[in-house]
Design a protein around this nucleic acid. Structure first.
Lengths: 144, 144
DNA sequence: TCACGGAATCGGATAATACTGTTCCGTAGT
DNA sequence: ACTACGGAACAGTATTATCCGATTCCGTGA
């Protein structure tokens, strides 16, 4: 008998967007002390692992064009959170790195994210979380 | 050590945002004929079921403040896609409805979304999709 | 050397988002 | 009935996000 759907299940994409809005807003609220916008938080969170990244790579990770990042990175640089270096081997590329203050901010962001995620995801169990990631991956992949 | 995670599992929130960006962009690209922005598409998609909604309700569904919607709705109204009526029983509220052209656009949006979702989700199986929704719901709930 | 293409930025345009204040309306208290 | 309070939406304003086209600088191959 067709799918044994328990409920009519709202559109996955709409639910996805709502969840993103909600979590983003929540993050910005909890991290209000840092005085950063959502995009800046997002950029720093993606840089938190310490690996340098080019603007293009960062844009691909976040989902925006390099053009969009220029302004965000300008502000982060002006605040002393990031540095713009040259990539060894290709001087066309700009290597984004964290300054000490940027690292502090990024660590705070990651910790806030981790705490939030653990709190929410722990009660659901690893299988569901794994399925969640799998679906996200599929949606992202198929959007290219 | 620590969790026997198969892979380091990137942050769920970062993956969530990337997926949202990617799918939104994909939608806007596929629906370029409609000449609508992401927010407009989002609003129409949420109205597609034909139930009228107040601005506040719509904002809650999308994840933005009513203030933000005013401009979006202005444009949709100017294009003849929506109407602003009064809510029976409370004349403070504005009831957003679809015009025929708005319904056409909304239907096209829903169909594009449905097709995309089916294509991506069908291969994953209903359990994973259900888990996906459950995690989304938990993340959204906990963000209040 | 020179033409081509990639990476990032700049200039300029539009949209998204939200804060504050205002208007209109509903409700409760007197 | 009158008034006070609060909710809903909008107007005004400011900041940010996003991107397109053009430009600059650089790497690569002919």
């Amino acid at each position: 008998m067709k799918t044994g759907s328990v409920s009519p299940e709202e559109s996955a994409l709409l639910a996805l967007q709502r969840a993103t809005h909600a979590t983003l807003h929540r993050l910005a609220t909890e991290l209000v002390d840092l005085d950063l916008t959502s995009s800046e938080i997002n950029a720093l969170a993606n840089l938190a692992d310490g690996r340098g990244r080019t603007v293009s790579d960062l844009g691909a990770a976040i989902g925006t064009k390099p053009t969009t990042l220029t302004g965000v990175l300008d502000r982060l640089e002006r605040r002393g959170h990031i540095t713009r270096g040259t990539l060894a081997g290709d001087r066309r590329s700009v290597l984004i790195g964290l300054t000490p203050s940027g690292r502090t901010a990024a660590d705070a962001i990651r910790q806030t994210i981790d705490t939030f995620e653990r709190r929410v995801l722990a009660s659901l169990g690893p299988e569901k979380v794994a399925a969640f990631h799998e679906v996200l991956r599929a949606l992202t992949e198929e959007s290219r």
